[in-house]
Amino acid sequence: MKEELEKRIVKGPDGIEFEVEPLRDYYCEAAPTVMPQAYSKIIEGFFNWARAESLWILGFGTGCGAIEMRPLMTPRFDAYRYGVQWRPTPRQSNLFIISGYLSVKTLKRAIRSYEQMQNPKYVIGLGSCTINGGMYWDSYNTIKCLDDYLPVDLYIAGCMPRPEALLAGFEELKKLIRAGKAEGANQYAENFEWYKANQKKVILDWDMPDYNW
């Protein structure tokens, strides 16, 4: 446990001493819950259509695959015309692309970012590293199967997949969302214990609350 996360007594500017417990005071620890769909099937379908047509990606590149996302913003591939945008903050994003290998150190940040996103949220695993470890299959500090740690909706295979493959992947994800099959956030809430156990198995210096949003 890092020193700044430990419970301590702090003296305020007015001389009053009070106790600070960062893990409790600065984070919300309530576990995620399964969020019900809209009460009517038609409305849920309508929302799903809107969610599919407006994918906001978290601008967080985890591995070398991040380089394949950049051309999508440029004139040659221009993903904006398909309703795909990049957002700089996890709060406003719906789609988290794990781009390439994910080291254990980055996994910690990826989990925190994922948990700050709002339901419904989607995860795409980009490149073969997220499927079976790829060329890092025997590395000691990268994870091998992303599905054990975050609920993945879609994998885009390849090392590296080209930007066209990513565009095709977005279109596939849109189909999944419209069909109501992309319920990763609820899946994460349902199997929360299992995901946490898997995450804690690889992250040995676990110095954050179990759930933090």
């Binding site: 019900p36 309508f46 809107a50 407006s54 015309r81 309703g83 339901n119 949003w213």
Partner: peptide
């Protein structure tokens, strides 16, 4: 670039109103 479709703002708005959770 081609840029966003002309109706994109409507969809973004509907999507944001339609998100299930907010804190």
């Amino acid at each position: 670039r081609h840029g966003i479709p002309i109706y994109q703002n409507y969809i973004d708005l509907i999507k944001n109103y339609g998100l299930r959770s907010s804190i």
